[in-house]
Design a protein around this nucleic acid. Structure first.
Lengths: 193, 193, 193, 193
DNA sequence: AATGAATGAGATTTCATTCAT
DNA sequence: GATGAATGAAATCTCATTCAT
């Protein structure tokens, strides 16, 4: 029986990703886990509450991504830096595909409450990307005309567009290596001096 | 009384954008228009039907965007080309902010049916961006390492990320000129020879 | 344009028979006639009113059936009497198949109001069959053990059962001659001295 | 609290019989049972579903009717055979008067789907009456001019006509003994050699 | 006479949540 | 902790009828 809460979260990830928030019913989740409806409410206050937990779960998992210290240490040039970073990012999205679907497709749409949650998470993410920006600045890799806010927008935009269209909406196997390679080429060109 | 159908569409755009598909109820739409519930169903078969109409409306409006012939004619260099194109794009998104919210935030999330509708539209959009790509190729602006699929991903990703974060999720006034300028700089650098 | 009222009645007969009272909508009737909804209400007070008119129409058409004087005049024996009578009856049902469907299938079911209308009609019909009964009695054809009420029940029951199962529910062509022949055999045997 | 499903079925039988399918609303059924609307849908998928269940219930109850083995064993002559059989039939209709109303009055009328359900049931019933026919044939009771299809039509027609007019549409107490006696007289005469 | 856009009461059905066991 | 029958507010959609033109 392990951890009931975790079982529910896993079922939630799978079903929310497959059907979307409003087309997922508590009945399905509890059936999938093999528990009674009442039991669900011992572990979560509401359907809403479970969904928020999934957003948090996403953040927990993707938190480590921008701990770039290790990357930095072993970086020789800008292209290989981006390539390594994107490989990590894409791999994580691929590994947690369902959770990614929930975040990229559902989280902003569902309702105002989740939107706020999402915006806060996005802000925290942006802060972390700041580390990356600082690193690039400090190492004199950055074209001085670049400004921070737009750099993050561009970086996240390219990354999410690839994840969305190559991984989530596509029926073909997502090739992490190739995607990282192609994208890093754009990024390097876009911002190098 | 003008055009009832159009009145309903306008109300739909506003309310779907504000509350999302599932939190928008026919009752609110008809109240907003000032008609009876039954009247709504004279013009649309269902809530679903109205939503689909909004997706189509978006496509109609944004169709012209990638008719780049005029742009092409008056283009001097790659940066000013992108800048002009993005100014047109961003202006249109800003002008149709609510419709944009519906497309970028709701359309993929609501349900499988809309997702299909959205994917088809996305495919048509990508085809049109092909014109842009061909133009760049023909004019020898493109780095030969660039491949088409990723170029479109990057282009759309940057564009949508800026629209999403600067226009839709931000509370501040969206500066079209600035956004087009910054983004075109990245794009030029990213793909020029 | 002939007679609007009659056009509506004809459309009503066809559509009520095909779809039943509650699955027939005024919209369909007026569309079939080629008039506007409002026009319908110039000729009938309500959907109900039209349906009542159809019940009356049935009665008008079937009224002549039990004017047996002519039959009586030319009758030689009981079997040929029944056979001739049933031939007339079955032919009329066949000719007015849709109206018959409405009476036999819908009229009792629809609602309390129609039920009353139907019961009254049934009573009038029974009275007319009385003529038949008197004729048989007067001619000393009837077994004395037979009583009137049950004779009518039996007569109408056999007749309607054949109409219902052979004409209305069956997909095969209804053979009036055969049906009249078979049924008259039973009837003759059942009541002859 | 006994059996919720059964309580709903009993309420359904009563109310459908009194008001007909389209004038019976879920609200009335649940109020009559004393449950909430949602509870109804725990036991039946729809109003339709409940109605189908009632048709099936009718068939279950009336299934035994044509198990004529016992009757056959104790039969001396044709008249007393019919009389006993009809007594059983009429008693059952009387006992389940409301269910009988639903079948004889509503089932064919409501809609195409029920009509199919009804036709299938009618076919099964006819098959069972075949046993009766065979018995009569085997015992050399039947006039050889009689053919099967019309015999069933006549038998069912007489029976249903009596049930309809004497039990369902009449306000007077239905006398089973008398009805069986009268009808069996007709039947015997109609088919005996 | 004829129209048809508009009405709105009311029907069926859904589903997150509760709570007595 | 676990259950699952029961809830009931609320949503979508229907359609006979009206009435200003």
């Amino acid at each position: 029986m392990a951890d009931r809460r975790e079982e529910i979260i896993q079922a939630g990830i799978e079903i929310f990703a497959a059907k979307g928030y409003y087309n997922t019913h508590i009945a399905e989740i509890v059936e999938s886990v093999g528990i009674a409806k009442g039991t669900f409410y011992l572990y979560f206050n509401s359907k809403n509450d479970l969904f928020i937990s999934l957003i948090r779960r996403f953040e927990d998992i993707f938190l480590e991504l921008f701990e770039i210290d290790i990357l930095v240490a072993e970086t020789e040039d800008l292209k290989s830096f981006f390539s390594k970073l994107l490989k990590k990012i894409f791999s994580l999205y691929k590994e947690h595909k369902n959770l990614s679907i929930i975040i990229l497709r559902e989280a902003v749409a569902v309702n105002e409450k989740f939107r706020e949650e999402f915006k806060e998470m996005d802000a925290r993410r942006f802060k972390r990307i700041n580390n990356l920006y600082q690193f690039l600045l400090d190492n004199d890799y950055l074209n001085q005309e670049i400004d921070y806010d737009y750099f993050v927008c561009v970086f996240v935009g390219i990354m999410e567009s690839i994840v969305m269209r190559r991984l989530l909406l596509s029926e073909q196997e997502f090739n992490v290596e190739e995607a990282a390679d192609k994208a890093s080429l754009y990024l390097e060109n876009a911002i190098k001096k």
